[in-house]
Amino acid sequence: MKRIVLFLATNLAVVLVLSLVLNVLGVGRAVTGAGIDVGALLVFSVVVGFTGSIISLLVSKPMAKWSTGARVIDNPSSSTELWLVNTVRQLADRAGIGMPEVAVYDGEPNAFATGAFKNSALVAVSTGLLESMSRDEVEAVLGHEIAHVANGDMITLTLIQGVVNTFVVFMARVVGFFVDKVLLRNNGERLGIGYMVTVFVCEIVFGLLASIIVAWFSRHREFRADAGSAKLLGSPVPMQHALARLGGIPPGELPQGMNSLGISGGNTGWGALFATHPPMEQRIAALQSLQLR
């Protein structure tokens, strides 16, 4: 909760700074003269920008269970399930977080963690992961997911998405007003077609640029989670082996919208700008240079 309050306070400060900058540069007066209520637009942008992201976070656990068909292990029915639950409990204790729900779902090798709160998260692994990897490697993957939870990555990524959404909504409408009222000389009380077309185009363009920012943070958090697994296990070697194994097999696909939650991924070339995961080679190299205290 403290993380959420501090982050929201920071974002509010960013919005206020944006408003001041617009006024200092004279943009605020210009858009006000064009008929824009900057304050109301900022509030509207914040509400639109954050509402969807926060709702998605709050329903992330039930949606993940439903979309993947994950079965929560309430009463372990096999030695593997018992080992899985006990391992997650041990890792959660080391990380100082509450015991997450542990689930298994049918699919190719992959794993994910989600949830709005670090003390009531969900950690799920696929049957393909359990069948294709050694227990040391699976433990490293579980450590990676527990590190995500302990770092508050799901919350932070959601709030960052909310921030960039806010800027996309705000700037698209400012440009739309400018085009409609200034360039197209629309002096009518109602906004014209120029506004609607400009906002539509700007939301696409700004949205693509914003997704690059979100993807960069997502890649950064993967490095942190890899390092977190190494610290929880006391050695980076199991995580290196797990990543090397995952790099040699096709990753299990997750439902649309959950790709950033998986253990593996990554693109090359221009696609790397939008990738939620770094290449396996970079992650392994980062672990090799990791200094554990």
Rank of each mutant, 00 (worst) to 15 (best):
A92F: 07
T32P: 05
R3M: 14
L16A: 15
L183P: 10
V175L: 13
A30G: 13
L232D: 00
Q161G: 15
G33C: 03
R293C: 08
F178H: 12
M171L: 15
V179T: 08
A70D: 02
V17Y: 09
D180S: 10
G228V: 00
P109C: 02
T166S: 08
V164W: 10
A140T: 02
V163H: 10
T276K: 02
F274M: 02
P255L: 05
S132Q: 08
A140H: 01
I155P: 05
V237Q: 11
A210F: 05
A140G: 06
G143R: 00
V15Q: 07
I36C: 09
A230P: 00
E253C: 02
P76H: 13
D93V: 10
N110T: 04
A172E: 10
P278R: 04
F170D: 03
A244C: 09
N110P: 00
R89G: 13
D180G: 12
R135P: 10
H220A: 10
L130A: 03
G96W: 06
T198F: 04
I54V: 13
G269C: 04
F206I: 01
Q288Y: 07
G266F: 02
L91M: 01
P278Y: 04
V149L: 06
R29C: 11
V125R: 05
L184V: 14
R94P: 01
V43R: 10
E145L: 04
M154C: 11
Q240W: 07
A9Y: 09
T80M: 13
R245S: 14
S79T: 15
V237K: 03
K61R: 15
S260G: 11
D93M: 09
L183D: 11
G188F: 00
R71W: 14
R89S: 15
Q291E: 12
F7D: 14
K118S: 05
D136F: 00
R29H: 11
Q90W: 02
I160K: 11
A103G: 01
P100K: 07
G115S: 06
Y195H: 08
S67D: 15
E253M: 08
V197P: 12
Q288M: 13
S289G: 09
D153A: 14
I213D: 05
D136M: 00
V72I: 15
G69T: 06
G33V: 03
L246A: 04
V201T: 06
V47Y: 06
A121H: 11
F217L: 07
R3N: 15
L208P: 04
A172G: 05
L261M: 15
R173E: 15
D93R: 12
G69H: 01
L129R: 11
S120T: 10
L22D: 12
S53H: 14
V5E: 15
L183F: 08
E145F: 09
